[in-house]
Design a binder for these strands. Structure first.
Length: 699
RNA sequence: GGCGGCGUAGCUCAGCGGUAGAGCAAGGGUCUCAUAAACUCUGGGUCGGAAGUUCGAAUCUUCCCGCCGCAACCA
């Protein structure tokens, strides 16, 4: 029985089109899976889509599709992108494209629910209990109101709707809860006990400190009337499973947990997994997932590894508003897949964020791939053709010729090169096993430099003119070629296509994916092997031309992207759905009457004082003159976008009859109106072009 | 303001108690097998600032400044 290895990407949330984040995580997982296969593991590689939840429903509505059509569309697009980048099964990529709408997943996740419910928490309580998701409901609004959205009039105990000025009904949506609060001690102990469990270390500490801050029980269901698109809770038709329980369980249901999908796969065989996730969803994959697994009596993952995010070339977050997004279509159109893979793995350093720019990518590809690896292959093969009729010569130097070899600066028995390579190979394996891809690759590039130097020092073009140096020349060529063989075997996981091509050009077969780097032995390359047909493996990229093409095409690409408008959630990364907590049933229609509108008292105010609130990143404190006896103190989350001093004297629109509310210990007596398109978008404060009187009412 | 991290050559970073390093970029030289490639020489950087511990600090301590992450605070 071969050792098994199970690697997963997150299943990507099917409300947004594929992007660089999806591509990156999948490339990394693919590289690991190829590497582990070479190392002799029986590997199972999972990726896929998370297809339930209210955000999918909304995205579907927005695009005039049924939820099913929506998720079919997105998962289709993802598969298409993966195929383009050679990550699909047809290219030896993922083994399963998991979809949470598969019937077997329904069975499996429901089974998981039942198993969790059977057990007790580490503190001896019921794991799942039925509770109430209490809320105040305004029937006319058809909406739950949160604490910030209602007010309690004097002399009444019942909250009132600020829009309809009527008492709210206390409605409790029934919900199942997972007793997460009982898992804190266990989580801390478990995570601390195994340094491999949660990586890298900085992230591990973050999670630990989060858990130490205390955990709240987790609502793990929604009422079907509110969210219908999901896996039904077992034995309770009225409820649907909360997305994270549903989504996370995919990692085991895909292996046949709780369903009859099995055959070659199986929980016993492949579980536990190594999960590769973006750092933004780390908490779900640790705090929640670990607890669910523990509750169900299952083993925890071997490792949850949180990788960094890609920033743009200047180190800023990528976003539509900034227009600095790397488009996967552009990558595919202008770059070799292997160059993209190399860049992704070389440029993102272990656990840190990376910068991704087309220019940086070109520089890397030209320096490392074209001038480095590609050129080494090219000069080596060219000399073999020219000097040795295309046959790989023997690397052996007879002792009588040692003196000549030494004169040419060559180590006669080649021991030095061999030890350099062995060392590099061990280092490569150590780094790769540790997911330190960047350093692993760096190690190999020192080898390339070393061999380039060997060639330059030995000067084959002079050796060829001297009969006595025939063996020295042979040795140079043999060592260079043998090094290329080693390199290509090690690089296969990172650049499958290019590695295979180098291998072929050396004149070897195409079983490279089966060769274990650890088993490489110097000298296995047979002298006399005719090299294959050669051509440039990494053609040099014309930087100015390609950059030109990209920048020309760019505005078009981003324009069509925005009109396509498939995205709803602004979540940059993978598999992330914001907590469904407290989100309310949708309103029937969007019209309000003039009376409704007039209930909102909008007044013109002049900002007298504006300053940052200490201890708060986003909060500004204003004193606004509304023409009343006292200026109002108003707090607003604008600190990230406005310089307080510049706002003083500005006339703004204030919601004057908003229920006062305390924030950061300060009472906010109103609200300053500002416009923004999305959460991410920077807001613009509403102002007047004409001179208006302070206190004037807007209607 | 809480917790954590970072600040070292133009850029990316390594070094983490004993006289400042690597890669890339730039400039000079050599060479021609090669994808204008490779090889080679060239970096005089207050190691963010200040104070302290020490025979000795980029390396330990404290304070300050500036970034970033997590959490909290906005709609």
């Amino acid at each position: 029985m071969p050792k098994t290895f199970y690697i997963t990407t997150p299943i990507y949330y099917a409300n947004s089109l594929p992007h660089l984040g999806h591509l990156y995580t999948t490339i990394v997982a693919d590289a690991i899976h190829r590497y582990k296969k070479q190392r002799g593991f029986d590997v199972y590689f999972l990726t896929g889509t998370d297809e339930h939840g209210v955000n999918i429903q909304r995205a579907a509505e927005k695009n005039d599709r049924t939820p099913k059509e929506q998720v079919d569309y997105i998962s289709g697009e993802l598969k298409r992108m993966f195929a383009e980048f050679g990550l699909g099964p047809e290219n030896g990529g993922y083994d399963i494209f998991m979809r949470t709408t598969e019937p077997f997943h329904y069975e499996g996740s429901q089974h998981l629910w039942r198993e969790i419910a059977k057990n007790k928490t580490p503190k001896g309580n019921e794991t799942i209990y039925k509770g109430f998701y209490e809320g105040w409901f305004c029937a006319p609004c058809a909406e739950f109101k949160t604490e910030e959205q209602y007010y309690v009039p004097d002399g009444s105990k019942t909250p009132h709707c600020p829009i309809h000025e009527r008492p709210l009904d206390k409605v409790a949506e029934e919900s199942y809860f997972f007793r997460l609060s009982d898992y804190d001690d266990w989580l801390i102990e478990t995570i601390e006990a195994d340094p491999k469990l949660l990586r890298p270390e900085a992230r591990r500490n973050e999670v630990l400190s989060f858990v130490r801050g205390g955990l709240q029980d987790l609502s793990i269901s929604r009422q079907k009337s509110a969210v219908s698109w999901g896996v039904p809770v077992p034995d309770d038709e009225d409820h649907v499973m909360y997305v994270w329980l549903d989504a996370l369980s995919n990692y085991i249901t895909a292996l046949g947990y709780g369903n009859d999908r099995g055959g070659s796969t199986g929980v016993q065989k492949y579980w536990p997994a190594v999960h590769f996730v973006g750092k933004d969803i780390l908490r779900f994959h640790t705090v929640y997932w670990f607890s669910f697994l523990k509750a169900a009596g299952l083993e925890l993952p071997k490792t949850v590894y949180a990788h960094g995010m890609w920033l743009d070339a200047d180190g800023r977050k990528m976003g539509k508003t900034l227009g600095n997004v790397i488009e996967v279509d552009v990558l595919h159109q202008h770059f070799q897949v292997d160059a993209v893979r190399y860049f992704a793995l070389r440029e993102m350093v272990f656990g840190q964020d990376g910068k991704f720019g087309y220019e940086t990518l070109i520089d890397r590809a030209n320096a490392d791939l074209a001038s480095g690896l590609g050129n080494l292959a090219s000069r080596t093969f060219s000399m073999i053709s020219k000097y040795r009729d295309g046959l790989i010569p023997s690397g052996k130097i007879a002792e009588d010729n040692y003196i000549h070899a030494r004169r040419a600066g060559m180590d006669p028995d080649g021991g030095e090169i061999v030890s350099v390579l062995k060392h590099a190979r061990d280092e490569f394996i150590r780094r790769f096993d540790n997911f330190e891809f960047s350093q692993a690759l760096e190690t190999l590039w020192t080898v390339i430099a070393r061999i380039d130097k060997m060639i330059s020092d030995a000067k084959p073009w002079e050796l060829v003119k001297d009969e006595k140096q025939s063996e020295t020349l042979n040795a140079v060529l043999y060592r260079a070629t043998e090094t290329l063989r080693w390199l290509s075997v090690m690089l296969y996981a990172v650049m499958p296509g290019a590695a295979r091509e180098i291998y072929r050009q050396i004149g070897l077969g195409d079983d490279i994916e089966k060769i274990d780097p650890a088993s490489l032995k110097w000298g296995e390359l047979q002298p006399g092997t005719p090299i294959g047909e050669t051509s440039a493996i990494f053609p040099r990229i014309d930087k100015s031309k390609v950059m030109n093409d990209i920048t020309k095409a760019e505005p078009l690409a981003s324009a069509s992207e925005t009109t396509a408008d498939t995205e709803t959630a602004p979540n940059a990364s993978v598999g992330a759905e914001p907590s469904a907590d407290g989100s309310a049933p949708e309103t029937r229609d969007n019209f309000i009457t003039i009376d409704d509108f007039l209930k909102v008292e909008l007044r013109v105010g002049e900002i007298k004082v504006a300053e940052r609130v200490p201890k708060a990143d986003k909060l500004l404190r204003f004193e606004v003159d509304l023409g009343e006896d006292q200026p109002r103190q108003i707090l607003a989350g604008l600190a990230e976008y406005y310089d307080p001093e510049k706002l003083i004297g500005r006339k703004v629109v204030v919601v004057a009859n908003l229920k006062p509310r305390k924030m950061r210990g300060l009472e906010s007596q109103g609200m300053i109106c500002a416009a923004s398109l999305t959460e991410e978008d920077s807001p613009a404060i509403a102002t007047f072009l004409e001179d208006v009187k302070i206190g004037a009412r807007l209607k």
